[in-house]
């Protein structure tokens, strides 16, 4: 990390910490919370999709499992929401290991892996719709009980800091991963799995680790969602909407980069918000923009916004990956 990057990062962090002081509007704080939450989950997707090259179309499986794990235990046994974070991470991670074990054990790659993750999310959605303890199609309401110990804040600022913490933690995890041996192995698998195996990389264990970490981080995203909105249902938790939004954030931001998902989340949600401001609050409008953005990014900027920023930061024309 150069001096300049360190200074810029520090400045952004200070601004982020002070944001709730300057922004009094609940609307804009809520907007920032959404950006931070999806940045954190986009980062989780990026560890599996960007670094390891395994595209998941069903991250809702982890998001929903984290959300339901903490909510069900909170309602039934009075589990403290802060402890719920660990439970959600464990639940999401376990689901990741389970799906990963089955898929990678049988050598599914590429499109097949994308399809099976989607199918798993759909199975979980149907199960959540039928099972009794998930509240079925009606969903679950978490009881209102304001207090920091209960992770319920009077204003949005409290939630903002929790979401900021999640985003920072996920950036830290990605940053550490990129510099670790596992990160190098994952990159090798992404570039050429057979060659990586021939060189002695335990590709199965590495991919399993990636999906486990990714699942745990996404489960934590579900944990935050449940305690922030105090409501979940099968469509929110396991529907394709979440899976797609998480994937979009990572793709638009830039695959396999530390800051990509954060940039992607900012760009995506700003574009969606702008679309609604300009053309009215019609359902589906922001999603039209998301879809166009996805196609355009794959067509014109396959390395995402992070690639654009990197080129702009280094005009001398170095082309190697940072």
């Amino acid at each position: 990390m150069t001096m300049r990057q360190g200074l810029a990062g520090g400045l952004v962090l200070v601004l982020a910490l002070m944001a709730p002081l300057a922004i009094q509007s609940d609307f804009w704080l809520g907007f920032l919370i959404t950006i931070l939450l999806f940045a954190a989950m986009g980062m989780a997707w990026n560890i599996l999709g960007g670094y390891a090259g395994q595209f998941s179309f069903g991250h809702a499986a982890f998001f929903g499992t984290g959300a339901y794990a903490t909510s069900v235990l909170h309602i039934a046994l009075g589990l403290n929401p802060w402890l719920g974070l660990l439970v959600a991470a464990a639940a999401g991670g376990t689901m990741g290991l389970l799906i990963g074990y089955l898929s990678f054990r049988y050598g599914l790659r590429g499109s097949y892996f994308a399809l099976i993750t989607l199918a798993f999310a759909e199975v979980l959605r149907i199960l959540a719709n039928t099972a009794g303890f998930t509240g079925g199609g009606v969903g679950l309401y978490l009881p209102l009980n304001i207090g920091v110990a209960n992770m319920q804040f009077a204003g949005k600022a409290g939630y903002y800091y929790v979401a900021l913490g999640l985003a920072l933690a996920s950036i830290l995890i990605a940053w550490r991963l990129e510099r670790s041996r596992l990160g190098a192995w994952l990159a090798a698998i992404r570039e050429n799995e057979d060659a990586a195996r021939a060189l002695g990389v335990d590709t199965f264990a590495c991919k399993l680790a990636a999906i486990g970490i990714s699942g745990a981080m996404t489960g934590v995203g579900g944990w935050f969602y449940a305690h922030y909105y105090l409501y979940i249902d099968p469509e929110i938790a396991y529907g394709p909407g979440v899976s797609v939004e998480i994937l979009l954030v990572a793709i638009v931001g830039g695959l396999g980069t530390v800051l990509g998902p954060l940039l992607g989340s900012v760009a995506l949600h700003a574009a969606g918000e702008l679309a609604q401001r300009l053309m009215g609050d019609t359902p589906g409008l922001n999603l039209i923009f998301y879809g166009v953005l996805l196609v355009v990014m794959v067509r014109l900027m396959p390395d995402g916004l992070a690639g654009l920023v990197r080129r702009w930061m280094r005009p001398a024309g170095g082309t190697q990956r940072a």
Binding site: F55, V244, Y290, G291, V292, L293, L294, V295
Partner: peptide
């Protein structure tokens, strides 16, 4: 990804 985008 592109066909997913088109479908959205």
């Amino acid at each position: 990804l592109v066909t997913l985008g088109v479908s959205i």
